[in-house]
Design a protein around this nucleic acid. Sequence first.
DNA 1: AGCTAAGCGAGACGGTACGTCAAGTCTTGTG
DNA 2: CACAAGACTTGACGTACCGTCTCGCTTAGCT
Lengths: 196, 196, 196, 196
Amino acid sequence: MPDPTRRNEHSRQAVLQATRELVAEVGYAKLTIEGIAARAGVGKQTIYRWWRSKGAVVFDSFLALSEGPDGMALPDTGDIEADLKAVMRETAAEFSDPVFEKPIRTLTLEIAADPDLAALYRGKLAGPVDEIKKDRLRSAQRAGQIAEDVDLDLALDLLYGPLYQRWLLRTGPITPEYAEALVDHVLRALRPPATP
Amino acid sequence: MPDPTRRNEHSRQAVLQATRELVAEVGYAKLTIEGIAARAGVGKQTIYRWWRSKGAVVFDSFLALSEGPDGMALPDTGDIEADLKAVMRETAAEFSDPVFEKPIRTLTLEIAADPDLAALYRGKLAGPVDEIKKDRLRSAQRAGQIAEDVDLDLALDLLYGPLYQRWLLRTGPITPEYAEALVDHVLRALRPPATP
Amino acid sequence: MPDPTRRNEHSRQAVLQATRELVAEVGYAKLTIEGIAARAGVGKQTIYRWWRSKGAVVFDSFLALSEGPDGMALPDTGDIEADLKAVMRETAAEFSDPVFEKPIRTLTLEIAADPDLAALYRGKLAGPVDEIKKDRLRSAQRAGQIAEDVDLDLALDLLYGPLYQRWLLRTGPITPEYAEALVDHVLRALRPPATP
Amino acid sequence: MPDPTRRNEHSRQAVLQATRELVAEVGYAKLTIEGIAARAGVGKQTIYRWWRSKGAVVFDSFLALSEGPDGMALPDTGDIEADLKAVMRETAAEFSDPVFEKPIRTLTLEIAADPDLAALYRGKLAGPVDEIKKDRLRSAQRAGQIAEDVDLDLALDLLYGPLYQRWLLRTGPITPEYAEALVDHVLRALRPPATP
DNA sequence: AGCTAAGCGAGACGGTACGTCAAGTCTTGTG
DNA sequence: CACAAGACTTGACGTACCGTCTCGCTTAGCT
C-alpha cells in the first residue's frame, strides 16, 4: 500500500542497524518492536508500514548484512576433497564462533517457523548460494571425482545436513576434524563406480 | 520449593493435555499460559509452580506423549539396507504428515532455542533412542555390512541430518524416494573397504 | 503567516462541509483532523494552515452555517408576553430537535472549554443577537410592560439560563409548556411596580 | 464482570487522587489514562477494569471529593430572601474561585457530553441536593413568602440557570451583587399574589 | 510568455496515547 | 498447603491521530 519511492532510506538503515544490535544484545525472544523503534529513533508506525512482522525485520536486517551471493566464491583447485574440506572447516568455524552463533540461530529459527520467510530466504540467499556450490560439484563431476549421475541437491543435503543438525540441536561439538570426516564420508558416497 | 508429593496428578495431566491441544489448534506462537490454564481448568499459579517456562510445558506435553525409548524397537532382518530404508521411509512419512508436522516443529524450535531444554531432550529421549539406532548399526558392523571403524554418531548425522534439514527449512519435498536414495548414499559411505 | 488572498475557497468550503457532516455522524469526541481532511479531499496541511485547532474548525463550520445576526429578527407585535412566548417556544423546539441537538451541543462544549473561542463567539454571534433581543426588551420598557430600571443582561439570563441549563444537563424535559411558564415567571419578575 | 468484593480499595483511591491532581495540573483535555495510571502507580488494566471511560473516572474522582448531600444543609432563618442571598453569594464565590473553577468546569463538560454520566450525576448528587433546596422553598411556601402553586423545579431553574449559564459561557462577571439581584428578581417572580 | 513563489493533495515521518493481551506475582477462600 | 479463581503491576502489542515535514503539481501575479 505505501509508496516505496517515498521511503526514507535513513530510517530503514536505522531500523536494520538497531535490530542487529538488539538481537546481539538481548536475543530474539526479548526483541521488541518498541525497542527497535526506540533504539533507531523511529516511530513504531514506520516499522509497521514497511515490514509485515518482527520476523521480517530480523530477516531483512541480516539479509542486508550478508553481502549476498555475488561476494561469494568457492575455491576450485581441481581437488574436490581439499576444496570441500577447506569450505566445511570454515563453515564449522563460523557455527562455533559465538559472534556468529546468535544471529544465525535467530535467523534460522525465524525461517523454520515462517514458510513465507523461508521462501524469501531460498529465493534471495540460499538458492543462489546453492547454485554456486552445485557448480563446484559439477566441475568435480567433469573431473571424474564425483559420479555423473548423482543428485546434486541430495549431495548438498549430505554435506550440510549433518553439520547443521549437530549445530542446531547441539548434539555434539563442531570441530575441524568433524568437518573433514564428514567430507570424507560424503565423497565416498558420491565417488564414481570403480572402472575396470 | 513445592513439595512434589502433594502434586495433583489430575491437574498435571489436564495441563499437558490442554497444551497439546492448543499447540495443534493455534500453534506455538499463539500459545499462552493463560490459555492453557483456562482450557485445563487450572489456576495459573499451578502451572508456574511446576514448570519453569512455557517451553518446559510444551516440552513435557510432547515428552509425555511419546512412549519413550522403551516402546521403540528397530527391525533387524539382517539386511541393513532394507531395514534402514523402512525406518527412513517411515520417518519421512511422519515429517510429511501435517498432523505430526506442527507439534514436532514446535518442539524442535523450542529445543533449538533453549540449551537447557536441549540437554533435557537429549538425556530423556534423543540419547536413548540414538543408542537403539546405534545398536542396529553395530549389528550391521558385525554382519560386515558397515565398516568396523566408522564413527556411529557421524553415521547417524549422515542418515538423519539431510532429511531433517530439508524438512525444517522446507528446501525440498520429503518423499519415500528421497529417503531411499539417502540410505543408498549413506550406506555407500559406510561400506567396509573392498577386500582383495 | 499565509497569504489569505491566495486561499482556495473551494477547499475552505469542503473542510467546513465535511466537519459539519462528521460532527453530525460521529460526534465531536470522535472527530479527527485526518477524518475531516480525508472527507473533504484536502491535505491535512491545508487545515493546519488556516485553523488554529480542531475547535476552531468546528466553530467556523457552524458559524458559517448560521446566517448571522442579520438574518435574525424578533417579532414585535406590541405584546411582549406573546412575542417572548413565541420566541421561547421556538427555541425550546430547536433544543429538543435531535437534528439541531448534536451540533449545538458540540459547539457549546467547545465554547465552554475554550475562552478564546468563547470571546470569538460572543463577538461574532452571541453579542449581536443579544443586542437584538435587548432591543425588543427596551421596546417593552417603552410600552410600560417591563420596569424601566431592569438590567437587561440579567433579564436575558433569566429568560435563557433556565432553559439552557435544563437542556445542557438534561435535568428535565424541554416542552412548550415549560417555555411558556418560564416566560410567565420572568415577566412577573420584570414587571414595573404597581402604581397607585 | 469483575467481582467487586475483590476490588483493591487502595488502588481505587490512588486512581481517584491522581485524577484529581492531574485535572488540576494539566486540565481535562490533556488528561490521559496512561498519565493517571502512572501517577497512581497502578496498571492501566486496573482502570479499564473498573471504569467505562475517562469521563467516568473523572466523574468518580470528584464525586468522591464532594461530601455528598448528607453534609449539606441550607440555612433556614425564616427569611427566605436573606437565606437565598447567602446561599447564592456563596455559590457565586465558588464559581469565581479559580481553585474550584477548573474541576467543576471539567466535571460539568463531562456530564453535558455523556448522558449516562448525567443520569448518574442526577441520581447521586444533583437530585438529593435539589430535594434539600426544594425543602427550603417549601418551608418558604408555608411561611407565605412564596406562592403555593409554583413549580419548584422551575423555581430552581430560575435561581441557578442564569448564574450557571453566565459562568459556563463566561458572558459576564459573577459578583455578589449579581447573585443578590438575581435572588431579588426570582423572588419577585415567585411571590404569592397580593391579598386584599 | 516565462518565472517564481505560494497553496495545494498526498502521505511518510517521529511521536503519544489508545485499548487489549499476556506475563508473572499476589490474595482470597475452599477442600 | 495445594488448589481454582482472578485482581494486581508491568510492559508490549498493533492502531489511530497528532502536528511537522517533504514531495510534485497547479495556479496566480510579476516581470
